[in-house]
Design a protein around this nucleic acid. Structure first.
Length: 689
DNA sequence: GTAGGGTTAG
């Protein structure tokens, strides 16, 4: 055994850590003097070396040293083993730490409370809080007692598994037991609350415990980390004003925000569309001499992409490179996604190629982004080619990869390929998620594969797979669209028996379904019942009702309801406006249709292809050439291309409309644009979700 | 020698 350890040690010495010590021997080190004698050090010497330099150690070396230490008799102190375990834990190689622990126990060494704390933290970080608790109930009971560090890890573990309530219960319990939470405990709980979208609770905790009115004995003096966590959490939930307030408060307390704090605040502001404010804080930060790093640049690049400024985002990428800040895979996938969202698939592809050229590892997210880009513009062959390339790049597809591809395949009607891909999931050891089943159900229904959809649905119901209301929504929508209103109604009635609560989406689907299947009275009855009960309906529900009313010729009623939306604090979407515009056009009320179109533009709601088509159709029908010209111009401004339309062609064909001919030729849709239009229409096809 | 904060995809 000892010789095996010696061999292992000499390998380590040749390989890494020690060789660098030979090159740069530390002054006045007796260990180095030993080493320069070119004899293989004994395990004990090795242990001494390790203890001296464990700060710069890598995981492999730590594991080897650990094994060596296990051979030493008498055993080195437990603290030395803990130190090495701590080093490995810092690298997030939790499985290795657990392995080390078992080796230790196997060698009859008695772990102390720190060993157990490290072990528990590893289990918690791996989302196995149950095993963490098992350690507390087992080893801990025998040897020593858990302390505040133990409980902090357990609280983190519960939060990571989304058991926020349990985490709060544990927090209160330990206070009841007389423990004083440390600043780490507070930070962990705040982070856990913010992670689960409970930033308001975190803020309340901060206010209660931070003031003199708090529970007796409970003191909380937040530090930089606590503030950063709380600010980011609040901003993420759209409570940007509260985040800013806290930002000022911490400054007032003399705690100066650092890069992480600014990043969290700026991220929140960007996500909430408060671009100017974000810029203001960014400038303040730079003025304070804090340099942005790759994470903040990525946040900014995402924000630019989200507001349609991919060119600027691209410029920012170049700027960060110029400034010597290396982009990472997050940065690249963010910008690639920005390009894909604008259908600039070639730019995304070039970036993807650039990553390879620069020697960057292209991770699964990069692949997923590009695959999604290809799916969005209906280039499924390319998407599948990328999928097949992933293996070559040693990149394992995730459930997101499969869900993306399945969605894309169903959208272009490639049901056979979707089916084949689904069976491949098992080969790739990827477990389908409830989203996967939703995509399959939706895909089968939309491609008129009613039998398959029903089969899958019944298999799922029988399999014991926990179906949530979202899945039922897809089935209900499928039934309604397939004209099977009887099945939909029956299933809808049965939801409570299954312990499921219909959501606003469920109700919207049913209202739309009733209208579509000519049960207008039932649709309105459901709508009125919901309104009277105080159930909060959203703009989609109202859009479904408006659409139904318009279709049954109740334009007056629809107009009244539309006007009432504003009182309810609801903001009409492009779909809502298009529905109303369509209603007016169909009834020959072109003036009303047009004024609503102007209104939506004024409100900052961008008209889309469907809006333009509806209006264009209306104005063509009444031969209003000047309006058609105006609309064509507006479309061109928005980079939207008209569909080839017979009536539009007739107007343009008229000799008297030379300017129109010219304009139409300039905006003549190419094959690619026609495909994009088709893709957009499919995406927007009366989707309630 | 153990516990806490900011970035990407469906």
């Amino acid at each position: 055994m000892v010789s095996a350890a010696a061999t292992a040690f000499s390998k380590t010495a040749q390989r890494g850590m020690l060789s660098s010590m030979f090159i740069h021997p530390p002054k006045s080190s007796h260990i180095t003097q030993h080493s320069t004698q070119l004899q293989t050090p004994t395990p004990l010497e090795k242990f001494k070396i390790d203890c001296k330099s464990s700060s710069g150690i890598n995981t492999n070396d730590a594991l080897t040293s650990f094994d060596n230490m296990l051979q030493i008799k008498p055993s080195p102190p437990i603290s030395s083993f803990n130190k090495l375990m701590g080093v490995v834990a810092k690298t997030k190689n939790y499985q290795d730490v657990i392995f080390m622990y078992h080796r230790m126990v196997g060698a009859d060494l008695l772990p102390d409370y720190i060993t157990l704390n490290i072990l528990i933290n590893c289990y918690c970080s791996l989302k196995r809080v149950d095993l963490g608790f098992a350690v507390v109930g087992g080893n801990f009971k025998r040897a020593c007692s858990p302390d505040i560090v133990t409980f902090t890890s357990l609280i983190k573990g519960l939060c990571l598994e989304d058991k926020i309530d349990d985490a709060v219960v544990l927090f209160n319990k330990i206070i009841g037991m007389g423990f004083q939470p440390s600043i780490w405990t507070w930070a962990t709980l705040i982070k856990g609350l913010c992670r689960g979208g409970n930033a308001v609770t975190a803020l309340r905790l901060y206010k209660e415990a931070g003031s003199s009115n708090g529970r007796s004995g409970l003191r909380f003096n937040p530090d930089l980390t606590c503030y950063a966590t709380l600010i980011h959490g609040l901003c993420k939930e759209g409570l940007v004003d509260k985040g800013k307030q806290l930002f000022l408060e911490m400054k007032g307390r003399g705690i100066m925000p650092d890069l992480v704090t600014y990043s969290g605040l700026i991220h929140g502001l960007c996500e909430g569309g408060e671009w100017e404010e974000a810029k203001r804080f960014f400038i303040e930060m730079v003025d304070r001499g804090i340099r942005p790093n790759v994470i903040l640049f990525t946040i900014l690049i995402r924000a630019l992409c989200k507001s349609g400024k991919t060119e600027e985002a691209s410029g920012l990428l170049n700027l960060m490179i110029q400034r010597g800040e290396e982009p990472n895979s997050f940065t690249y996938s963010t910008l690639m996604n920005g390009f894909c969202m604008e259908n600039r698939i070639d730019d995304a592809k070039n970036l993807f190629a650039l990553m390879e050229a620069k020697g960057y590892k292209r991770d699964v997210v990069c692949y997923n982004v590009l695959i999604n880009g290809y799916c969005k513009c209906q280039k499924l062959e390319e998407a599948m080619r990328l999928f097949n390339e992933m293996a070559r790049d040693e990149c394992k597809p995730t459930v997101i990869t499969f869900n993306t591809l399945l969605t894309g395949l169903f959208q272009v009607g490639k049901v056979e390929d979707a089916r084949a891909l689904f069976t491949k999931m098992e080969v790739h050891e990827v477990t389908p998620s409830s989203s996967t089943y939703n995509i399959l159900l939706d895909g089968y229904f939309n491609n008129n594969c009613l039998v398959e959809a029903m089969e899958l649905f019944h298999t799922l119901e029988r399999s014991g797979f926990v179906l949530n209301v979202e899945t039922y929504n897809f089935v209900l929508d499928g039934f309604c669209k397939a004209g099977k209103l009887d099945l939909a109604s029956e299933l809808f009635e049965r939801l409570p028996q299954k312990g499921l609560v219909p959501t606003v989406v469920t109700y919207s689907i049913m209202i739309q379904g009733f209208f579509k299947n000519n049960f207008h009275a039932k649709a309105m009855e459901l709508f009125h019942t919901l309104e009277r009960s105080g159930f909060v309906l959203n703009i989609v529900t109202y859009s479904c009702v408006l659409d139904g009313l318009c279709k049954v010729g109740q334009l007056e009623l629809a107009s009244e309801l539309f006007e009432r939306l504003f009182e309810k604090g609801l903001v009409p979407t492009v779909v809502t406006y298009s529905i109303m515009i369509h209603g007016f056009c169909k009834n020959g009320k072109m003036e009303k249709a047009y004024s609503l179109f102007l209104e939506m533009e004024k409100e900052g709601c961008a008209p889309n292809l469907i809006t333009f088509n509806t209006l264009m159709h209306g104005f063509c029908s009444c031969n209003d050439a000047p309006k058609v010209v105006e609309l064509l111009q507006k479309m061109a401004e928005r980079n939207i291309f008209p569909d080839a339309d017979e009536k539009l062609g007739n107007i343009i064909g008229d000799e008297s409309n030379k300017s129109l001919q010219h304009l139409f030729k300039a905006s003549q849709p190419t094959q690619e644009h026609a495909e994009l239009n088709k893709a957009m229409r499919r995406r927007q096809a009366c989707r309630v979700e």
